[in-house]
């Protein structure tokens, strides 16, 4: 509802953050500032869902089997069959000037399930090569990056570990936030060699508006 004050805050926050980001003023301290928990009325209702800023990746994530942007760029006809067939809603046509309408991966609505190879089945041009679920589960399409200043363990002092709990390739481990308190709060650390870039951690990270863990694309996909 437009009258909800917390929602209004969220959207003004977002605008301010975008302005800051555009000006290149986005330092760790601004992230921590922006990620302050929203005040929620303790009335038994639903908390408003705060908007999330989606990360600007240096390398866009290609569907698994896309290999790299050169091979993929040459073969893909931008037919968008994979986009419409994706049961996890992670493929979107990109609107960049270089490869218009070719797919890229985003994790707003879900993550790229290791056991699903639907896009490789429907791709008519071989841009997404045919693969088995076993191949898929061991193909690295990106790797997770941890943003400590955005993590709720740091900003709110609450225990979480949702990323580690859900990682399908056990690439995230929890380590003590401070070395003096080995039994205290724990924060994630990522084993980049095991990470396949499925995006489950990014999708499930509770930090808003800046996600505390996000996936960066790899230049060339490889088997881990």
């Amino acid at each position: 509802m437009s009258t909800d004050p917390t929602r209004r805050n969220a959207s003004t926050n977002r605008r301010r953050f975008l302005t800051l980001a555009a000006l290149g003023l986005c330092s760790p301290s601004t992230i921590a500032e922006e990620n302050k928990p929203a005040e929620i009325a303790a009335d038994g209702g639903l908390a408003p869902l705060r908007e999330r800023l989606f990360p600007k990746r240096t390398i866009p994530i290609l569907p698994p089997g896309g290999i790299n942007r050169y091979t993929f760029g040459r073969r893909c006809t931008a037919c968008a069959l994979c986009v419409s067939a994706c049961p996890n809603h992670v493929l979107f046509p990109q609107n960049g000037p270089k490869e218009p309408f070719q797919p890229e991966m985003r994790f707003e609505h879900g993550y790229c399930r290791p056991e699903c190879v639907r896009c490789s089945e429907v791709c008519p041009s071989g841009a997404i090569k045919k693969m088995t679920t076993a191949d898929k589960a061991s193909t690295q399409i990106g790797y997770a990056v941890y943003v400590r200043d955005a993590c709720i363990v740091v900003t709110e002092g609450k225990s979480c570990g949702n990323c580690a709990r859900h990682c399908p390739s056990s690439a995230i481990e929890l380590i003590p936030l401070s070395a003096e308190e080995p039994d205290g709060l724990k924060v994630p650390t990522i084993d980049t060699d095991r990470c396949i870039g499925c995006g489950r951690c990014e999708y499930l990270c509770p930090a808003r508006p800046v996600s505390a863990i996000y996936v960066e694309g790899v230049f060339t996909q490889r088997t881990v």
Binding site: L49, I152, C160, G161, N162, P206
Partner: peptide
């Protein structure tokens, strides 16, 4: 976005 997988265990 309100389902059980979003529980942080706080």
């Amino acid at each position: 976005l309100r389902q059980a997988d979003h529980c942080t265990g706080c």
